[in-house]
Simulated scan of single mutants.
Amino acid sequence: MAQESGKATSSRPFIRALPSAMAIVPVSMLFGVLAHRADWSMLEVLVVSVLGFTGSGQFAVLPLAEANAGFLTMLIICASINSRYLPIALTTTTRLPRRWWVRICAAHLLGDEAYATEKDGDTTKDTLIIRLTIFLFWVSAAVLGALMGKLIPGEWLSTDIHLGFPASVVLIYLSVSQIKRRVAGGYRLLPLMVAACLLVVGAFHQWLGATFFWMPSVIMTAILLEQWKKHE
C-alpha cells in the first residue's frame, strides 16, 4: 500500500508537467525542421537542444548560423536572450538540490514551461521531475523534427510564413496561466492583469526596441504582479 502511495506521489509532478511538455513539442519539432533546412546535422540539433534548451535562443541562432556568424557572436546573443531566466531562477533556489552538480543541472533545466508548472510548495524531487520531463520532450521533439525535415518538401517552408507563431502562442498561454496562478482574484481580475502587463511590455518595446525590451519588461511585470498580490 505504501509503495502504491509513493508511486502516486511521484506521478503527480509528471502529470502536471505533461500538458506543458506536449505543448512545446510542435515548437521544438519546428526548430528541428528549420535546423535541417539550414543544413544542420542531427548531432548539431541534439547538442544545441541539450545545451541551449531555450526556444528563443535556439531560433535566434538559426539565422546567425546561416549568415556564418562566429561562435562567440552566437554565444553572446543566446546568453543575452537567456538572461531573462536570472530573476526567474532566483525565485526557485529553495526547491533546488543541495549537491552543487545536481543543483547546476536542475538550474539548467529551468524554462518558461517548467516555471509556469511548478508551485512554491513543490519538493526538490517534484521540481526535478517537472523540469526533466519537459527537457526530454523538448530534446526528443527537436531530433524528431530534424528527421521529419528530410521528408518535407522545401517549397512547403516558404520564407513568407511566420513559422515562429506556435512558439508565441505557447508563451502567451503560459504567461496567462502564471498570472492566474500567482495573483489572487482568479478569472475575475485576469483580463485587467493581462492588460496591465501588456501595457508595461508594450511601453518598453516602444522605448527600447525589439532587442532590449525583454529584461526590463520581465522585471517590471514581476514587480507589478507582486504588488498586486500584496493588495489582494
Rank of each mutant, 00 (worst) to 15 (best):
G6I: 15
A8Y: 07
S10A: 14
S11T: 14
S11I: 15
R12V: 04
P13C: 09
I15R: 11
I15C: 02
I15L: 07
A17V: 07
A23Q: 06
S28F: 06
L30M: 12
A35F: 10
A38G: 08
W40Q: 03
S41G: 10
S41R: 14
S41A: 10
M42F: 15
L43I: 09
L46C: 03
V47I: 09
V47P: 01
P63K: 00
L64D: 08
A67V: 03
N68C: 12
N68V: 11
A69E: 03
T73A: 10
A79C: 11
Y85K: 01
R95T: 10
R95F: 10
R95A: 10
L96Y: 14
R99M: 12
W100L: 13
L109I: 04
L110D: 03
A114T: 12
Y115S: 00
A116H: 08
E118M: 04
K119G: 03
G121R: 09
G121P: 02
D122C: 00
D122I: 00
T124N: 06
T124W: 08
L136Y: 13
W138L: 01
A141Q: 09
V143G: 05
G149A: 12
G149V: 08
L151T: 13
P153S: 14
W156D: 10
H162M: 15
G164M: 06
P166W: 09
S168C: 06
V176D: 02
Q178Y: 03
I179K: 01
R181A: 00
R188H: 03
L189A: 02
M193F: 15
V194E: 02
A196E: 06
V200L: 11
V201S: 06
H205V: 04
F212T: 09
S217L: 01
S217C: 02
I223V: 12
L224T: 05
L225V: 03
E232M: 12
